[in-house]
Design a protein around this nucleic acid. Sequence first.
RNA 1: GCCGGUGUAGCUCAGACUGGCAGAGCGAAUCCUUCGUAAGGAUUAGGCCGAGGGUUCAAAUCCCUCCACCGGCUCCA
Length: 642
Amino acid sequence: MSTVTVTLPDGSTLSMDEGSTVEDVAYEIGPGLGSDTVAGVVDGDLVDKHTPLIEDVELVIVTPQSDEYVDVLRHSAAHVFAQALQREFPEATLTIGPWTDDGFYYDVTGVDLDEDDLETIEAEAERIIEADYDIEREEVPREDAFERYEDNPFKQDILETEAADEDPVSFYQQDDFYDLCQGPHVESTGEIGGFALLEISASFWRGDEDNETLTRVYGTAFPTEDGLEEYLEMRKQAQERDHRKIGQEMDLFSIDDTTGPGLPLYEPNGKKILNELSDYVGQLNRDAGYDEIETPHVFRTELWKKSGHYDNYVDDMFLLEVNDEEYGLKPMNCPGHATIFDQKSWSYRDLPVRYFEDGKVYRKEQRGELSGLSRTWAFTIDDGHLFVRPDQIEQEVLATVDIILDTLDTFNLDYTVQFATRPEKSVGGDEIWEKAENQLETVLEEQDIDYVVEAGDGAFYGPKIDFAFEDALGRNWDGPTVQLDFNMPERFDLTYTGEDNEDHRPVMIHRALYGSYERFFMVLTEHYNGKFPPWLAPEQVRILPVSDDNIPYCEELQAELDDFRVEIEDRSWTVGKKIQVAHDDRVPYMLIIGDNEEEAGDISVRDRNEREEKGIDLAEFRDHLETEVEQQRTAVTFLAGR
RNA sequence: GCCGGUGUAGCUCAGACUGGCAGAGCGAAUCCUUCGUAAGGAUUAGGCCGAGGGUUCAAAUCCCUCCACCGGCUCCA
């Protein structure tokens, strides 16, 4: 009999008979490991422990101590849900039910479910867990599988696609419930310690909008009840960090029903932050050789017919009829910028030409897509466009990526990088696309940036590099971006005169350091949990008089700090309450001023991290704050080292 | 656009299941208190109960339609 070589995580190898299972390998290593084995990871794929090894592989044994164990457990939890569902609603049809990063879902159809039903199903699931049914793998001939699912077109579809080459196919059975499934699963339903159904939603079969609508039930499971409790607590904590909640609490912005959906209104506190953000990138742009321009909010649609956007994007534009002509709110700034470039003739010596604008754009997103500041109908892009010679592409992309990395560093943000390539619907030739993609990828490689390739996810006019952030609820949002565009210069017939006195075509680069102010504002609010760095904080210092008699001295202090955003708390409250409210408002520094300070001519400083010190010289505090703001430090540091 | 949930005072929420006077706390205003480290006290004002229609003697409450928001799906130049 021939043998296979199994490579274990520590690099050691075992020689096993061909056809040995994952479990056999575990027993070969040791009987304890053998009996603990839940599943295996074979060449990166999580598989059942009975999977035979027929070629040389890398193998990780999964036991209840492994990271993968909880995935296996949740997969079993999905089956428990399905069994409970079928007990309560025999008419329900099952489709697919995988595990996810933090739980599982099961897509079903043929049944209408609401929240009360979830409770009923959850109670039934608890009984199934309590009963501790063995979960057993079963090999079933294809023919029999089709028979089992003669009324279930979805499972038939799976048999004809994913499982097309398998005969027999594997089922997992617990009690009288069975499900077509590759596994792996835990030994018995009782291994689930904490089980909860969380959400109900609609989904589409195979994720395609044109297919049947299914009902998706989300749930989660943990080995212990405590694990579940902890998870639910974490979810609650995350909701506390939601920018919509903080935005309300801190009077940063609001979105009003009367003024319209997806149209954020920035209140004074929010606008102060926006101004700081705008000044910051404005300076970066000027330092990098950009010129600021400005364009209006509305253009004739001729412009987007010229740019090609009209064909691709008209459904998402706000259009208006003026003097029998069609106008539209601008959904992007680039055609305006290209038009400005086209106002004069350029020499090759003038390039690169770099324009930037905080440009407000309007995009009529689908209803149901709008969400706080992360997805809006009106938003402002810190938009920049470069017009470069082909030989300047790499250096300019490199410089742009550099500024983006600097910006992200200033705010101390976590991010991921995606390299998006040519989509199905695109303009421009094969050669041009290949060239563009190669140049972007070269920069990523040179900068040693970790990135993932998102094939087919590029803009219709060119490939792009996107930087994405995660929000409080774990959703990903695109932010900074660099996009090459070989198309728009053609559309606008943009030219420059070369050394050879001939017309040449410049290349356009679209880029944003924040992406949109709205989305970046969301990211910052949640990242800092509303505790904005002092340079961004709407109110940097709040002076708290101990009694009203101290107010005149407080006003003197305020005047001394007039370079900063300083307020006096003059409401007739106790000191304790003034401190409470200043903490709630997340003000970086409080100055507590009573007779003691007034007589000594000094101040008491308390920061929002509850550090405090008395008898401080105002000038010392002012100098420190000045440094902290100038250096854009992300933390309050005055009392940190004292 | 699809499924589920929600919409009551500036904010946070009771009341709805079982139809019968519109409620609380915070905030605001006025007054008292002038206070030393995480919410001092009293009084007052504040409502088209998301909008429209229906059922009923009577609708915040029941039914229908629409709008918006929340979670998810799909979409996102």
